[in-house]
């Protein structure tokens, strides 16, 4: 359960960005969360409510977009990206070659904020 630590970092980063932009209020925080990030969505949402207490983000909504894992298959007949289901093996679904080129899935990234400005 490191989601509370993650939530505090998230709130700190988002608060700073909102303040710099002169936001009066933050309505929503949009987060991109890869399936390999090791972060549990429900635990993060729970931690978010705790971490936002007494901050400019209190009462805001955390909107999480879950991103599947995308690998790149470098074998001569493929040379393209594939979305794979599950986390138990990074293999090309077409030619079954293992791939260590993960193009998507590690994200733990604040995409944007919805803010109120004067």
């Amino acid at each position: 359960m490191h989601e509370l630590s993650i939530a505090y970092s998230l709130v700190q980063n988002a608060s700073e960005a909102a303040q710099q932009a002169g936001a009066r209020k933050v309505n929503k925080v949009f987060l991109r969360l890869g399936q390999l990030s090791g972060v549990v969505k429900e635990a993060l949402l729970f931690g978010y409510d705790i971490a936002t207490k007494g901050t400019p983000l209190e009462g805001s909504e955390l909107v999480i977009q879950t991103l599947p894992i995308v690998i790149y298959c470098a074998s001569p007949q493929c040379q393209q990206e594939f979305t794979i289901s599950g986390l138990q093996g990074f293999r090309c679904p077409k030619c079954n070659q293992p791939s260590n080129q993960i193009r998507q899935g590690r994200e733990l990234e604040i995409e944007k904020l919805e803010i109120e400005v004067d």
Partner: peptide, 14 residues
């Protein structure tokens, strides 16, 4: 007050 989007694209653990 107006509502707008603020693009960030920043890692949470940056």
């Amino acid at each position: 007050m107006t509502t707008r989007y603020l693009e960030i694209r920043q890692g949470v653990l940056s």
